[in-house]
Simulated scan of single mutants.
Amino acid sequence: MGNKNLRNATVALLTPLPSIFFYLTFLNRHSAATDDDSLSNLWSWCHHHPLLLANILFFLNVDLHFWLVGLLQSSHWMIDLYWIVIPILLLHYFATHPLAVFDKWRSRLVVSLTWAWSLRLSHCYFRREKWQWGAREDWRFTDMRRDYGQNWWWISFFAIYISQQVFLMAICMPLYAIHWNEKGLNIWDAVAASVCLAGLTIVYFADTQMHRFVSRNEKLKKEGKGRVAILEQGLWRYSRHPNYAGEQLWWCGIAIFGCNVEYDWWFVGPLANGVCLGIVTLLVEQRMLNKEFRAEAYRNYQKTTSVWLPWFKVHEQQKET
């Protein structure tokens, strides 16, 4: 287990280096050039096409490279880890590109918030995985691997990687817009930051409560005792998926930043994230209903508890009326 953990950690740290090295080389060549005419065709193209360059690097280094590594390891675990890192990489790419123009205070605020989001999600990921690298792939990918059988090797390229590029680029576009507009900081940035912080707070407590619940059930199982079927304490008393509600709130905050700098497509990110989380919600709930020991309890939970937005339980409302 120790050798596998070290190997996966090494793979995870090395795989993004081609894109990082290429971009740093571009920045170095650009800073050394006296004018645009002194740049080679390649570096000049990188200068004038920041979004296309970001998508090409994503395609080559994440879609293609990560996919090949996943095929060799028979596990597409790494995309889950890099879902945490890619928004950070894109954010700093947008902020450091030679064409970037922006208000430095808004940029610093968004950078700080995004790093807080990434660190929280990193902690949640490694805590859930018991501080191991690549211990398992997402259960949804495992289910698809079983369903698609021999065709999974090529379907996985589109189902996991291409789809995630479209999704991640869509939700991160406000980060691009923020660094392509010099509009000064205003009250809407405070609103956006407050929404982001509210989302981070909700998802942190929701994940922590779920982690304690899962850890307690694992302990009960080892002791040969009956497990608790459903978590109905804390935020989970008022929402079946408070973690998703918090995550959606976070991206809505990022979208408000984009709207404030007059990014016309600011709503696409929250919309895409909402659709994705909606699909995941259906998959998670079906999985819960397929577990015999908690199926009946979860059906009752569905009847009495809000899906995303925290709200009073149905029977509590009835008592009040």
Score class of each variant (00 low, 15 high):
Met1Val: 01
Gly2Asp: 10
Asn3Cys: 09
Arg7Thr: 03
Arg7Val: 04
Asn8Val: 01
Thr10Lys: 05
Thr10Leu: 09
Thr10His: 02
Leu14Gln: 04
Leu17Met: 07
Pro18Ala: 01
Ile20Val: 13
Tyr23Pro: 12
Tyr23Lys: 12
Thr25Leu: 15
Thr25Tyr: 12
Phe26Glu: 09
Phe26Leu: 07
Ala32Met: 10
Asp37Ala: 15
Asn41Glu: 15
Trp43Ala: 11
Trp43Cys: 12
Pro50Cys: 12
Leu53Gln: 08
Ile56Asp: 07
Leu57Asn: 11
Phe58Lys: 01
Asp63Trp: 00
Asp63Thr: 11
Phe66Asn: 01
Trp67Gly: 03
Leu72Ser: 12
Ser74Tyr: 10
Ser74Gly: 12
Ser74Glu: 13
Met78His: 01
Met78Val: 02
Ile79Val: 06
Trp83His: 08
Ile86Lys: 06
Ile88Arg: 00
Leu89Arg: 08
Leu90Lys: 02
Leu91Ile: 03
Ala100Ile: 03
Asp103Thr: 00
Lys104Ser: 10
Arg106Ile: 13
Arg106Pro: 04
Val110Ser: 03
Val110Asn: 00
Leu113Arg: 11
Leu113Thr: 15
Arg127Ala: 15
Lys130Gly: 01
Lys130Met: 10
Gln132Ile: 07
Ala135Cys: 09
Ala135Tyr: 01
Trp139Asn: 05
Trp139Pro: 05
Phe141Leu: 01
Thr142Pro: 03
Met144Phe: 06
Asp147Ala: 14
Tyr148Leu: 08
Gly149Val: 04
Gly149Cys: 05
Trp152Tyr: 09
Trp153Tyr: 14
Ser156Ile: 03
Phe158Thr: 07
Phe167Ala: 08
Ala170Glu: 06
Ile171Trp: 02
Cys172Ile: 02
Leu175Pro: 06
Glu182Phe: 11
Glu182Asn: 14
Asn186Lys: 05
Asn186Glu: 00
Ile187Tyr: 11
Asp189Gly: 01
Ala190Ser: 03
Ala193Leu: 11
Ala193His: 13
Ser194Gln: 11
Ser194Phe: 13
Cys196Val: 14
Ala198Gln: 13
Val203Asp: 09
Tyr204Asn: 14
Phe205His: 15
Phe205Lys: 15
Gln209Trp: 09
Met210Ile: 14
Phe213Ile: 05
Val214Lys: 10
Ser215Thr: 07
Lys225Glu: 11
Ala229Cys: 01
Ala229Arg: 04
Ile230Gln: 05
Leu231Phe: 00
Glu232Lys: 08
Leu235Lys: 00
Trp236Phe: 09
Trp236Val: 03
Ser239Asp: 06
Arg240Ser: 03
Asn243Gly: 04
Asn243Leu: 00
Ala245Ser: 13
Gly246Ser: 08
Gly246Met: 08
Gln248Ser: 04
Trp250Asn: 11
Trp250Lys: 05
Gly253Val: 04
Ala255Phe: 11
Gly258Ser: 12
Gly258Val: 08
Cys259Glu: 10
Trp266Glu: 09
Val268Leu: 14
Gly269Cys: 11
Leu271Pro: 06
Cys276Arg: 14
Leu277Gln: 10
Leu277Cys: 02
Leu283Trp: 06
Glu285Pro: 04
Gln286Thr: 09
Met288Glu: 02
Phe293Ile: 00
Ala295Gln: 15
Glu296Pro: 04
Ala297Phe: 12
Arg299Trp: 13
Ser306Asn: 13
Leu309Ile: 15
Pro310Tyr: 04
Phe312Tyr: 08
Phe312His: 10
Lys313Phe: 06
Lys313Arg: 12
Lys313Pro: 09
Val314Thr: 13
Gln318Pro: 09
Lys319Pro: 06
Thr321Trp: 13
